[in-house]
Structures are given as C-alpha cells and as structure tokens.
Amino acid sequence: MLATTLACPRCQSTHVVKNGRIHNGRQNFKCKACGRQFVQYPTKKVIGQETRNLIDKLLWERLSLAGITRVIGVSEQWLQTYVNAKYEVTGRQVEIEEKKRGGLTIQCDEMWSFVGNKGNKQWVWLALDWKSGEIVGCYVGNRSGDGARGLWQSLPSVYKQCAVCYTDFWEAYEQVIPESRHRAVSKKSGQTSLIERFNCTLRQRVSRLVRDTLSFSKKLDNHIGAIWYFIHHYNSSLLV
C-alpha cells in the first residue's frame, strides 16, 4: 500500500499499489478496488502518421507486438488497440488482377497453427497460382471437409470454374474439387513445391505462426487478420 493519498482516476479509491513500470520507465499503479492501471500526472502522447506507417511495415516482419513496443516506444495497450482495429478492417478476400479462363493451375496446401493454446488447432488452407505466384485463396478453420470447402469458396470464380488443382493426398480435397481437375500428388513430385515454400515464408514472416513461440494469437479474429494482412502485402509485392 502506498503511503501517499494517491487516488484512482476511475473510482477515486485510495487502495492503490505499485504495479511495475510502463514502456518509458515511469511508475505504473493499479487500483485494488476496480483494477484500473494508471500513471501519476499522465501526459498524452500523440502517435504521428510516420510512426504508424513504420508500425504497419513492422507487422509484416517476424516481430512480436512486445518487440514492436520496445523498438517504437509506444505502449502495449495502444499498440494492441491499433492492431485490433487494423486487422478488423483487413479484407478477407484476395485482391488480384483479372485472369483469363484458360491455362490456370493452382497448388493447394494446409498448415497447422493454433490460437490461445496448442489444443485449439486452426489450420490455414492456402491456394497459390502456379504462374503468377499469387496467393489466390485462404481459409482458416479445421482440417476436415469444411476447411477444404472454405478454401474452395475463397477462390475467385475463374479458378473454381477452370483451374487444375494440385494437392497432396489429404482426402478432404476430394470432397470439394471437381474430379476432372484435381491432381493429388506426392511432395516428391515437385507439383506443390511453391505453396510449400510459401508456407515456410508465412511462418518466417508472421511470428504468431512459428511452431514454438510466445507470440501466439489469443483471439481468432486477430489470427485471421494477421494472415490476411501479410497475404495482401505479399501479393502486392509481386507486382513491383
């Protein structure tokens, strides 16, 4: 208990204790009555657009949110709120140039991830255009036929109508891909090597997808948002 008469700004209780320090070294306090955390004599810090643009770029790299706060000097609470808002408005459909109907080939694969704990598995289903290298489909869900169906529904219409689809032998693909255009192949064939390589890229660039990590997602919406945020960046980088 503090010897001073410091009062909580929310409930005015004086039952206040020290609770570590914030990112800039100032003493942080916590109200035992309502749980509010605060600093004495706070100064409002305006986060400029230049800093926000830098954060946007850092989110494309393998940095945890805690790491970004240490580099940039913003609070974890502000950054989490900023990231939540950004991922909420991130589109869940691919944005690619219109494709002609003939000669389309895609490679499909699924990769394991989790949210909250490793018991809550979330499989990331992906489809890649063999010619352009673009990610043309993505779905996050279970590894059953529902997951494969979600991936199929995420594809632009031209791919669902015309593309030849190369996958591994996972049976869920057979439930949704037309038999005449489905090619189940082994990894040794090299026919799914591009999407497998992208899986590695995704794990290297999105920290919450690393198999053994402290940066895992706590919320499914943010997990999905982070994946799509990187996919949009990856596809746009292919056009440069």
Rank of each mutant, 00 (worst) to 15 (best):
L65P: 00
M1Q: 05
L65C: 00
E50L: 14
V16M: 12
W60H: 12
I68W: 00
T105G: 07
G147F: 05
Y139G: 05
I96Y: 08
L239M: 09
S157H: 15
K100R: 15
A163K: 08
R205N: 15
L65I: 01
P42W: 02
S215W: 06
V140L: 09
F38M: 02
Q161Y: 09
G225D: 06
Q37R: 11
G116R: 08
W78M: 01
R10P: 00
K160I: 01
R183G: 01
T105Y: 15
A127V: 03
S154D: 09
E171A: 10
N222K: 09
E95A: 13
Q80A: 07
T4F: 05
L239K: 11
G67V: 00
D129I: 02
Q80D: 07
V210L: 05
E171R: 07
Q175G: 10
G147S: 12
E98N: 10
Q37C: 13
L54H: 09
V210G: 07
H233W: 15
K99E: 09
Q191T: 02
F38I: 06
K187E: 03
Q175M: 06
C138T: 15
K18Y: 07
Y159W: 05
E110G: 02
T69P: 04
I135R: 09
F29M: 13
G141A: 13
K57H: 10
G119L: 07
W78R: 03
C34D: 04
Q122T: 06
S75L: 01
T213E: 01
T51C: 08
L194E: 13
I177C: 04
F38Y: 03
K44N: 13
A33M: 12
E171N: 11
V185F: 01
E95W: 03
R211E: 02
H15A: 09
F169T: 05
E179C: 09
K121V: 13
T69L: 00
Q175E: 14
N117P: 07
L155M: 08
L126G: 03
L2Y: 03
L239G: 12
V124Y: 03
L239A: 13
P9H: 01
G225N: 08
T81G: 12
V89C: 10
Y159G: 08
A3G: 07
K118H: 00
Y166M: 03
K219F: 12
D168F: 00
D56I: 01
C162P: 06
R205S: 13
K45C: 08
V74A: 08
S186Y: 11
K160R: 15
Y87A: 08
S157D: 11
R211T: 02
K219N: 09
L238V: 11
G116I: 03
L220A: 06
Y229V: 01
F29D: 08
S207N: 08
K30A: 12
L65G: 00
T105V: 15
K32S: 07
G133L: 06
D221Y: 12
G150P: 04
I68S: 03
M111H: 13
L155A: 13
F38W: 09
S144I: 08
S186E: 11
Q77R: 14
K218C: 05
